[in-house]
Nucleic acid binder design. Sequence first.
DNA 1: ACGTCAAGTTGACGGTGTAAAGATATACCG
DNA 2: CGGTATATCTTTACACCGTCAACTTGACGT
Lengths: 207, 207
Amino acid sequence: MAPMSTDTYHHGDLHRALLGAVGEIVAEQGFHDLSLREAARRAGVSHSAPAHHFGDKDGLLDAFAIEGFELLANRFDHATRSHDSDDDPIDLVEGLGRAYLTFAVEDPAHYAVMFNHTKPHDEYVGSDLAVAADACFEQLAGAVVELVHHGLVAEANARYVATMLWGTCHGIAVLWNDDKLPHFYEDHSFEGVLDGVMGVIRGLLRA
Amino acid sequence: MAPMSTDTYHHGDLHRALLGAVGEIVAEQGFHDLSLREAARRAGVSHSAPAHHFGDKDGLLDAFAIEGFELLANRFDHATRSHDSDDDPIDLVEGLGRAYLTFAVEDPAHYAVMFNHTKPHDEYVGSDLAVAADACFEQLAGAVVELVHHGLVAEANARYVATMLWGTCHGIAVLWNDDKLPHFYEDHSFEGVLDGVMGVIRGLLRA
DNA sequence: ACGTCAAGTTGACGGTGTAAAGATATACCG
DNA sequence: CGGTATATCTTTACACCGTCAACTTGACGT
């Protein structure tokens, strides 16, 4: 273990400290006002220390976004494991949908970076970030395969249902977190929306 | 009409020229690399001319985003007008969905600014941008009301169906434009995805 | 003709990302 | 234990950015 004392020349775990600072700043001031120098300031290091750990700003955002996708994947794992394969596959879909949306609303900082930190096509494809993002999508797609097995979805439609599912979750998450939706609901709480939307999805899939 | 000559001290229509430059830059280099100074350069004016028309960077992005929401509203109008009220209301929903997604894919620059240019809650609510965004959502909600009238959706679920509809469109648009989806489809063309998803939505609503 | 005012310019300031070169503490190897 | 190597962090510098204040230009009304 590293010393971790606060006044040594070496920080101890600057890598994690910087990721933590990014989370703080994005949560407080939003994604667009984030600066490397401010993150370095909060970690108590000089302004160009981050470069040694993450290369450049893009690298730091990459790392934070990947961390986010891993957190989401963990929630998916948890939801998947608490589902018995004999159960109604719609329960699995609902579980994943709820996991996705609660993650996005509970950790808007990670969620914002995961999807606001976009890159040009050539840089994105094949990157670690793309791999982490795809891994999450695969878990959603797995639930749709379950629907196909139970005859609730035609195999030819499986891909489309999966992208629709991801799209629906992502769209609602973004619209809610960016204040496009809340004023349409009196209580301004997300739980009601979550229940309502899940009810609709259940109804549609069941039919 | 203003003189429009290129070497006069006064530009003629700098307002529109700057909005056009923003579109160019975002289309070429993405939202995050956009700078006021580059926009001014492309418009052939000094670096601080934009301030006189838009106040600050936020103002310019606001104007461009509002322009985007108006373009989208126009497409919605067109889709709504070409729908006979005796027709299947699902056709109207599909028409609006197609209009939304084709707009997002055909004009990714406007679409990116419309949803990447986020503000803190207090600044957003009540702003012109919020008004323009809500107007678009109302048109979608109108189609859902039509579904309710035809008994295809319970009135209690209307709000949830509307947010789900918007969420689905928005989510798919963002995921596609940001390269999260294309590599799941061999031909990398959006038309197939559009048809597939619309087919699924039709099937779900019809049931 | 003149004054007024909108439209653009110029110059400056602090803040940002990044690169190069220097300083320092830890790790490793005899 | 001693000395060197190396990863870690700092310092310095540079170009670019958004914004502000002061200035210049041109058009327009009276």
